[in-house]
């Protein structure tokens, strides 16, 4: 091999073909475990697909939109989408407001900064399963929360109450994910120009006014990101309905689309309808993200 690459060689492979070697393992990984499954998900959702013994020759006929029709007319699936909508309505605004307010406060605080930061981040780094265990204990019928509330305790109790199960899950996820969003906002706050606050102070704006007029518009790109990421987290909801409310209970009141996907696809062996749910879910997330961007980034 000559030391100097020929022009044709460069044209096909690029100036530093070693990059292809360096990135090959990652490219193969993305192809095998992201791109191909993504295509397969869509393919499965348009076919009569079922699990078969390895090596068995089975026909999986194209069924057009049948799986989508089945999914969209299934009351359990519809219920799960309504449930996750309820989740998002509680979780997203609460997340945006609290994490921005907390990040702003953390940004100015001088004392015990490390302790405060660690306290707010630590739920984010901890396993959902471990945290669900404590919430089960806290919100059980005879749990501490009900002991504190005394006669005000709801009946039936939180996790077995159809009207309260989803709000408790939304609250749990807000608490668990808050640290990450505070971190995002703290990063965004560093790029809000200081003199904007100074001129707001000169104009006689109080703290609330300068928060609304300088901070909120200053971190708007971060807000778009927070809303989109919180929506994706909500769309991925599984562990909490599975464990905290004992399988989407009571009576499906907290079943999430991913939980229904798991039931239909794996437990009942219908990967085709489960894939259709997945595709519908992602289309919804994309639509919500686009609408968010439109609303949040317009001038």
């Amino acid at each position: 091999m000559t030391r100097r690459a020929t022009p044709a060689f460069t044209r096909v492979l690029g100036r530093q073909p070693l990059g292809i070697v360096f990135s090959a393992p990652y490219a193969v990984f993305l192809l095998a475990l992201f791109a191909y499954p993504l295509g397969l998900a869509v393919w499965i959702s348009f076919h009569d697909y079922f699990f078969a013994a390895p090596g068995a020759q089975v026909s999986r006929p194209f069924v057009g939109l049948d799986n989508y029709v089945a999914v969209l007319s299934d009351p359990d699936v519809r219920r799960s989408f309504v449930n996750v909508a309820e989740f998002l309505v509680i979780n997203v605004p609460l997340t945006v407001v609290l994490s921005l307010v907390l990040a702003t406060a953390l940004n100015t605080v001088v004392r015990a900064r490390t302790f405060l930061r660690v306290s707010y981040y630590v739920p984010y780094v901890t396993a959902s399963v471990a945290l669900v265990a404590v919430w089960l204990f806290l919100f059980s019928k005879g749990g501490l929360v009900n002991s504190l509330l005394g006669p005000l305790a709801p009946s039936p109790s939180w996790l077995v109450n159809g009207a309260l199960a989803m709000p408790v899950i939304a609250l749990f996820v807000t608490w668990k994910q808050m640290g990450f969003f505070i971190l995002l906002y703290l990063a965004a706050l560093q790029s809000v120009p200081r003199d904007l606050y100074e001129s707001a102070a000169v104009d006689g704006a109080n703290r609330f006014r300068s928060f609304m007029n300088v901070t909120v518009p200053g971190v708007r790109p971060a807000t778009t990101l927070v809303v989109i990421l919180a929506t994706i987290t909500g769309a991925n909801l599984f562990t909490e309905p599975y464990l905290l409310t004992n399988g989407g209970g009571p009576d499906g009141a907290s079943a999430s689309p991913v939980f229904v996907m798991y039931q239909k696809g794996i437990e009942q062996g219908n990967p085709d309808t489960a894939s259709a749910i997945g595709v519908v879910l992602v289309v919804c997330v994309l639509l919500i993200s686009l609408v968010n961007r439109r609303i949040l980034e317009r001038d």
Binding site: Q16, F22, S23, A27, A41, V258, G278, V282
Partner: peptide
């Protein structure tokens, strides 16, 4: 490094962050 396919790989890497993993659980 400048190599053929860098732009595509970068775009797919960003896409991975947006597509919910849960969509992929059935095919994976």
């Amino acid at each position: 490094l400048h190599f053929r396919g860098r732009g595509t790989l970068f775009a797919v890497m960003l896409l991975v962050q947006i597509v919910p993993f849960q969509l992929l659980i059935i095919p994976i």
